[in-house]
Amino acid sequence: MNPTKLLSIQGLRTEFPTPDGPLAAVNGVNLEIARGDVLGIVGESGSGKTVLGLSIMGLVDQPGRVTAGRITFDGTDVTNYSEAQWQGLRGNKVAMIFQDPTTSLNPVQRIGAQMIEAIQAHRDISSDAARQIVREAMVRVGINSPDERLEAYPHQFSGGMRQRVVIATALLNAPDLIIADEPTTALDVTVQAQILRDMRRLCRDTGTALIWISHDLGVVAQIAHRVAVMYAGRIVEQGATEEMLKSPSHPYTVGLMASMPANTPRGQRLASIPGGLPQLSNLPKGCSFAPRCTHATEACEILPDLCFTSANHAVRCVSPLHERGQHATGD
């Protein structure tokens, strides 16, 4: 085991049973993240990126469960942890932030109580001492007059403020890893930029590794060192952010980039990828993206492996685009 790796995931498969047989929301994912690293996971709704995040937290809702693969955290295999063991890990070593800040906080409990309980779940300290830590955490995420704010209820906060509270809560026990599941999607653009900047700063200052899950490649590009693109439960392309943005190789990544508003000239219609996600119950035999892919050939009927095209770049495609000398943004 490589000691510098904080989190290592091998062949992870998370399934949900249905009357038509199990659906694999996460289907053989391999990932590694080092301390202080920022990994972006990009994909559209239903691509399995949220379930991947929940699997790492041991929070997959019943009856779904991890059926194969291994999750190693800080050198320890946590795949078969009991609920009590997960409780010791969650919020302590690994924290998670969810998409909608308006629903992440208990509406009938004071902000302070909700933050203090996160500390006391893991450390045997007095409420006063915990309160002091909470106060400092609130200042760190830019909430002024924390004493007053601790007595407030969630509905007295704006969306951006609530997400700051959630982020401060995630940071309370100085976790090694934070999984942020679309934490800025529900916020307006200016607040989004602030939160993004703050998260980057906080993780750098504390050396916390970050997994940033988003459907927005543009947001991920601003924060992540590395990006993994997910499609129908699998990682289809992975690499260093800059390299991948410069030369995306998987037709799906190229399509995602082409559909970004920033890459579209003013007044022109946004590009879109024809078709929709395949049903997990009825995946195509080979490459899941083949039915929507304009470059698909017969060779695509066999599922390709995730292959390295350079030291920092891997792609799951039989004929990666940039090797054929095509331009990243397509035409």
Binding site: M57, L59, E83, W86, Q87, G88, L89, R90, G91, N92, A95, M96, F98, D100, T103, S104, L105, N106, P107, E117, A118, A121, H122, V166, T169
Partner: peptide, 17 residues
């Protein structure tokens, strides 16, 4: 099924709590 329960679990709280 609410997010705040999921977030509470993500904080590492016990089921009893």
């Amino acid at each position: 099924a609410q997010d705040y329960i999921k977030f509470a679990r993500a904080k590492g709280l016990s089921s009893k709590r």
